[in-house]
């Protein structure tokens, strides 16, 4: 019978006060509020814990590995034969293999990605852009195992038709297909940077009689350069960490070479290779995965930080 308690002169405005303390506030919502904030905060910490766990795991197993193998042999060695006797643990052939494939992928995606970005930002009418961009972005959504299959069954035979002495597993095939994979990323990020270039710069050049090509190459590309560099760096970082294409198409023979027609082994491909057999926890082979993973993690981390720094630079520019 709450109604009987109401007296005419207690004129309380109905509803709780915003952030009010004390009068009229019930306890339950405040407990709920308190609990909710802590639950949400705990969820947000998961991502930080993940990073710590990644770094901790890689470092712990790597330190254990460096008890067995001297650091300088790992970093400076040019022979990687952990699975045979006498075993040798020089990581350079794996790093070199990764970099060779990444270089091919970088050249491919730089050429076509920036060409596509210039076309989309400077030439294509809006209607064409709206059709082409989603189609290109489908490329970024295709699973990498499919690209690996495509490289091995379609691109490699073509390469071997042109260069009959190329290995079945070669860095060129993997690199070209990987370039196709990261092309939409490079072109989208570059295009964003080009669109951000103020129109007044283009209008100035057109007023002086420049052609579209001259405006694109002499005005827009230099002005958008930090963004384009960022796009390329982030694309290459994806390429370095990519696993399935290099595992399927580039081979499993650690090989320090500059010839993209030879078979190589990338860092990621080595980690997969170890997992193809059961290697007991604590064995040297098991620890090598984490040492190689640490190198991979540091390389991609450095590139991602550089890429984000470059993006911030061009965003602040205009």
């Amino acid at each position: 019978m709450a109604n009987q308690d109401i007296k005419p002169n207690t004129a309380v405005i109905p509803g709780p006060r915003p952030f009010g303390r004390g009068r009229g506030r019930r306890l339950a919502p405040r407990i709920e509020e308190f609990a909710a904030v802590w639950v949400l905060r705990a969820a947000a910490t998961v991502s930080v814990v993940t990073t710590i766990a990644i770094v901790f795991t890689l470092l712990r197993e790597s330190f254990a590995f460096f008890q067995d193998v001297p650091v300088w042999e790992f970093i400076g060695g040019t022979k990687w034969t952990p699975l045979f006797k006498p075993s040798s643990f020089g990581v350079l052939p794996l790093v070199g293999g990764t970099l060779l494939v990444t270089a091919v992928a970088g050249l491919t995606s730089l050429t076509f990605g920036i060409g596509a970005a210039i076309f989309l930002s400077e030439y294509a009418p809006d209607a064409v852009r709206r059709v082409i961009k989603p189609v290109l972005e489908v490329l970024a959504g295709i699973p990498t195992v499919v690209y690996g299959f495509f490289a091995l069954t379609f691109v490699t035979p073509i390469i071997r038709w042109f260069f009959p002495d190329a290995n079945i597993f070669n860095a060129l095939s993997a690199g070209l297909v990987m370039g196709l994979m990261i092309m939409p990323m490079v072109s989208t990020l570059s295009e964003d940077a080009m669109v951000a270039v103020p129109r007044s710069l283009r209008d100035g050049a057109y007023a002086l009689g420049a052609t579209r090509f001259e405006v694109a190459v002499k005005i827009v590309v230099p002005a958008a350069l930090p963004g384009i560099v960022a796009a390329l760096i982030l694309g290459l970082s994806r390429a370095i960490g990519e696993t399935m294409i290099v595992t399927i198409a580039a081979g499993a023979t650690p090989n320090l070479t500059f010839n993209p027609l030879e078979g190589i082994q990338a860092m990621t491909a080595y980690i997969v290779q170890v997992n193809q057999g059961e290697s007991p926890h604590g064995s040297v082979i098991f620890k090598t995965m984490f040492a190689v993973g640490l190198v991979l993690f540091l390389m991609t981390l450095a590139m991602n930080i550089a890429g984000q720094w470059a993006i911030r630079r061009y965003r602040n520019r205009y």
Binding site: T50, T57, G241, T243, G293, F297, Q308
Partner: peptide, 20 residues
């Protein structure tokens, strides 16, 4: 730190998560 960390986590190669 949480925000920067999430952006960086998105760039970590997937096989590193596998090792984790």
């Amino acid at each position: 730190i949480i925000r920067v960390n999430i952006a960086n986590l998105a760039g970590v190669p997937s096989i590193i998560y596998g090792l984790l």
